[in-house]
Every structure is written in structure tokens, then in C-alpha cells.
Computed example of a mutant assay.
Amino acid sequence: MNSILVTGATGHLGSAVIETLLKKIWADQISVITRNEEKRAAFEARGFNAFLGDYDNLATLEQAMKGVDTVLLISSGDQGDRIQEHKNVIDMAVKMGVKHLAYTSRCMRDRNTLVNQLMVEHFKTEDYIRESGLPFTIFRNTLYMDAIPQFVGGQAALDRGILLPAGEGKVAFALRSEMGEAMAQVLLNETCENKIYSFTGDQAYSFDDIASALTALSGKEVKYTPVERAVFAAMMRQRNVEEALTQKILDFITDIKNNQEAEITNELAFYLGRKPTRLNEGLKLVLAL
């Protein structure tokens, strides 16, 4: 890899990728796109090739891909039409003669039985990449350990416990920063052979395991109570959460209940050169305990 464009460079995952890349290549070999002019200027001041725009700005995409041999497409959020946004990046990479496209997908057990349509969109993007004919690398990342506070309600869980319709479903959580580090190691050291990498923790944890870990870390007894979907939806209404958002959360948790996120591989550990951060240590970091 001689030069790379990192989309989503200002996010936590993109930042982790870039900081690892900088250990082996110069900043002027890295191009970035950001929606924020202040952040663009900050990147430029550090020696990056920095462009102002987003996945819908075709002119910016074209400019940013000039002379680039690798594009890392960090998946878009769900605020807009992210399938179209992904297609914009992929199509431009084809047009500009990019030699290699990498994409951040999700590690799910069975795409055909997913409830969460946002996860389905990852696999539709994978399909489009294959159809494009571009040499590719797909990073199927597990659910971020950093997201646990969002599921349990942050430190409030220490007092009220965890109530979720997740049953005994497990997730092979891993820290976002470690997945970003491993992705960068692949991009730096592996040849592009149309490979798929599945980056997960080396253990899978239920929310009961999370409650036990929080108990050990805080000294307070934290309980996990599995609840029905209808009960959880009623809780969300009491908190004035919009129905559409509640449905997204329920779909996400239902896939967890169905063990869609429980796959374990050793690939993250291999590319880190160490064991991934375990649950107790990770919770200390993400909840500042």
C-alpha cells in the first residue's frame, strides 16, 4: 500500500486506524474526508491530504481518490440512505482506478435470519463490492465493547440494574480501538486477495456476565433482568423515546438474543499480537470505573 483514503476519519474507528498507520507510513500518504472544516484544517496541519465533504459529495470523493491506491470505506451511519452513500464511494473507486477497496462490515452469524435491517445493509454493501470487480478486503467487526454503556444505561445500571429483552444471548465484544489497530495491520502487511477478516473478542458475554462484571468492579450488586419486548417498549415510551428508535433498539437486541453476535475467532488476537481486552478491563475503560 503506497497511499490510502480513509473515509470516516474523524470517528473513533477511523482515528484508531490512522494512528496505527502512522507508525509505518507518512501522513502525506494518507488522505481523509471530513464534514467539518475545522477538523479538515487540523488534519491538513498534520500533513494529511484532507478534504471537506461526505459520501454524497461526488466531487470531493473524486478529488480525494486521485492518486490513491487503497480506499478504506468506513460504513456510514443510519441518518441517511447509507446504501446509496456506500455505492457512491464504491462507484467512484471504480471510476478512479483504485486498486483495493476495504470495507468495515459486521460479524453476524447468519445474514439470512437477521432482524436488524441495518445489519442487513452491511451484507448488501458487501455484495455490491463483489459485483464492482474491485479487489477487496472486508472487515467483519464484532459489536463494540464501547457500546455497552448505551445498552445498560451507563453508570445508572449500578443502581437500577440491567433490564433488556436479550435473553441469554451473548456477544463477543471487543474494543473499537483494538479493531481499528488490527484493521490497519492488515492494510499495512497483507496483500489484497479478496479476503474477509472477522474481528471478535476471544470470549462471548451475556448481559448477565456484564452485570457480574459491574458488580465486581463497583462493589454494588448489579442484576440483569431479561424482560419481554413489550415490557421494554413500554419502558421506552415512559422515557419519551420515539417509537422508530425503540424499534431499532429492539431489533438490535433481538439479534443479540438470537446469538447473532456470539461468533468467536482468533483473528483479532493474531493481528494485534496479543489477546484482546477482556470484559472487566474493558468496562473499567468505557465506564470510567
Rank of each mutant, 00 (worst) to 15 (best):
2 N>I: 14
2 N>M: 12
3 S>R: 09
7 T>N: 03
13 L>Q: 11
15 S>H: 02
15 S>D: 08
15 S>Y: 03
18 I>Q: 10
21 L>G: 10
23 K>E: 14
23 K>T: 15
23 K>L: 15
24 K>I: 07
25 I>F: 01
27 A>T: 15
32 V>Q: 01
33 I>R: 01
33 I>G: 05
36 N>A: 15
38 E>N: 14
38 E>S: 15
40 R>A: 15
41 A>L: 14
42 A>M: 07
45 A>R: 05
47 G>V: 07
49 N>I: 09
50 A>N: 03
53 G>D: 14
54 D>I: 03
54 D>C: 01
57 N>P: 10
60 T>I: 14
61 L>P: 04
63 Q>N: 06
64 A>V: 11
73 L>E: 02
74 I>V: 15
79 Q>M: 08
80 G>N: 12
81 D>I: 00
82 R>Y: 14
83 I>T: 00
83 I>N: 00
86 H>Y: 02
89 V>P: 01
90 I>K: 00
90 I>Y: 03
91 D>Y: 03
92 M>D: 07
93 A>F: 12
95 K>A: 15
95 K>P: 08
96 M>S: 09
97 G>N: 03
98 V>G: 07
100 H>P: 11
100 H>L: 14
105 S>A: 15
107 C>V: 12
108 M>T: 02
108 M>Q: 01
109 R>A: 14
111 R>V: 15
112 N>T: 04
114 L>C: 12
115 V>P: 05
117 Q>L: 13
121 E>A: 13
122 H>W: 13
125 T>R: 06
127 D>Y: 09
128 Y>K: 01
132 S>L: 04
133 G>W: 11
133 G>Q: 10
137 T>V: 05
137 T>L: 06
141 N>L: 14
142 T>H: 02
149 P>R: 00
153 G>L: 10
153 G>R: 06
153 G>D: 04
154 G>N: 01
155 Q>L: 08
157 A>G: 07
159 D>S: 09
160 R>Y: 09
164 L>V: 08
164 L>Y: 08
166 A>D: 02
172 A>V: 02
173 F>L: 14
176 R>L: 13
178 E>L: 05
182 A>E: 13
187 L>S: 05
188 L>T: 00
189 N>V: 11
192 C>Y: 09
195 K>W: 04
197 Y>Q: 07
203 Q>G: 06
203 Q>C: 06
205 Y>L: 08
205 Y>Q: 11
212 S>H: 11
214 L>G: 10
217 L>A: 11
219 G>M: 07
221 E>W: 00
221 E>N: 02
222 V>S: 08
222 V>C: 09
226 P>E: 08
227 V>N: 07
233 A>H: 03
236 M>R: 04
237 R>D: 05
237 R>W: 00
238 Q>P: 04
239 R>I: 00
240 N>K: 06
241 V>A: 08
247 Q>E: 13
248 K>S: 05
249 I>E: 05
250 L>P: 00
252 F>K: 00
254 T>F: 10
255 D>Q: 04
256 I>T: 10
258 N>I: 11
259 N>I: 12
259 N>C: 14
260 Q>E: 15
260 Q>F: 12
264 I>V: 15
267 E>H: 00
270 F>K: 07
271 Y>M: 09
272 L>C: 08
274 R>L: 12
275 K>A: 11
276 P>H: 03
277 T>G: 02
279 L>A: 05
284 K>I: 01
284 K>T: 02
